[in-house]
């Protein structure tokens, strides 16, 4: 079995970086200074993370939230008011649907920036690209245009699929797709499956499907028809998923979301190793990950948790 420590979604945007961005957005520093300082800060962080993790995302450093980049770049969308992101004290600009949704410019800046930083590092560090999934996206926006959720979800799926294709063209080998609403009581599986299929048919890069903040509310078998390479699940707030996952017949690789990204308490390395061991018969490849994006904890704690991930997964390397 191969075991790797990996990030999902974001690494918390450090306060210093936030200050820098505000200054730039308010026109208080010029682009050149901003880029130079930003790259230096991001380099520092990625260097630290890369000691313990062998796969990162673009860390969503440039994303204010999971949807914000697309409100700016997709035709038919505008940024609206602040809404709570799921049940967190964290808020996102709601995408307001004002017209037919179409993919325009790709939002590659974040991915490319991190990739160029990674190239400057010694050693190998894989990067995956992050996208919101079409189902969650369509349910979490403010639809003022489409007459049905179905049509909206399918158009968003098309546009996100185009985006994934652009990312793939630019070197992304894995696309991490966030569908936290798979854990919602009111999940419409028909629509989820249709929109996911439409989305995933637009590109051929590997897909890492990520869910969080609870158990997936459908039978895992319902997902087996979909083009999924890695299934990332939350084992912190939904321990009961563990047995379900061990019981499933599939060729998936597993994202073991065992690090609590909403708590400052540090996990014990031995309990993490114990979890990984239990998966060894079932899965050929396991990624030890946080249970969700890490925006909800301080940078110092995120780094300490990543440390634990590194130590826990390292033993399994031959």
């Amino acid at each position: 079995m191969i075991v790797k420590a990996a990030l999902v979604g974001s690494f918390p945007r450090p306060f210093k970086v936030g200050r820098l961005m505000s200054k730039y957005r308010d026109g208080k520093i010029d682009e050149e200074t901003y880029e130079k300082k930003l790259n230096a800060e991001l380099m520092k962080i990625i260097k630290k993370i890369s000691k313990d993790v062998s796969m990162i995302t673009d860390c969503m450093f440039l994303w204010d939230d999971l949807f914000e980049p697309f409100s700016n770049s997709f035709e038919g969308l505008e940024k609206g008011g602040l809404y709570r992101f799921l049940d967190n004290n964290f808020y996102y600009r709601i995408p307001v649907v004002k017209g037919l949704i179409r993919h325009m410019d790709a939002t590659l800046a974040s991915f490319e920036k991190v990739r160029s930083i990674v190239r400057g590092l010694r050693g190998k560090l894989d990067i995956k690209a992050v996208l919101p999934g079409p189902y969650t996206f369509s349910k979490m926006c403010d639809n003022r245009y489409y007459s049905s959720l179905e049509r909206l979800a399918m158009d968003i799926a098309e546009a996100l699929g185009e985006e994934a294709r652009e990312l793939e063209k630019n070197g992304a080998e894995i696309i991490e797709v966030h569908e936290p609403l798979l854990t919602s009581e009111e999940i419409d599986m028909g629509l989820f499956i249709d929109s996911f299929k439409a989305f995933s048919s637009k590109f051929s890069a590997k897909i890492w499907l990520q869910t969080y903040f609870g158990p997936i509310k459908t039978k895992l078998e319902d997902l087996s028809d979909l083009r999924i390479n890695v299934l990332g699940i939350d084992l912190v707030e939904a321990e009961e998923q563990f047995d379900r996952v061990l019981g499933i017949k599939s060729t998936w690789e597993l994202g073991l979301g065992a690090i609590n990204s909403r708590s400052t308490k540090l996990e014990s390395v031995s309990s993490l190793r114990c979890l990984i061991k239990k998966t060894s018969k079932k899965f050929s490849k396991v990624y030890l990950t946080p249970n969700a994006m890490m925006d909800f904890i301080p940078v110092s704690i995120a780094l300490a948790k990543i440390r634990k991930m590194g130590i826990a997964s390292r033993v399994f390397k031959k």
Binding site: D65, F296, I297
Partner: peptide, 14 residues
């Protein structure tokens, strides 16, 4: 601990 982000570039010390 160090501040965490709440939206955009707004932070608070949780």
């Amino acid at each position: 601990y160090d501040p965490i982000r709440i939206w955009g570039n707004a932070y608070y010390r949780k």
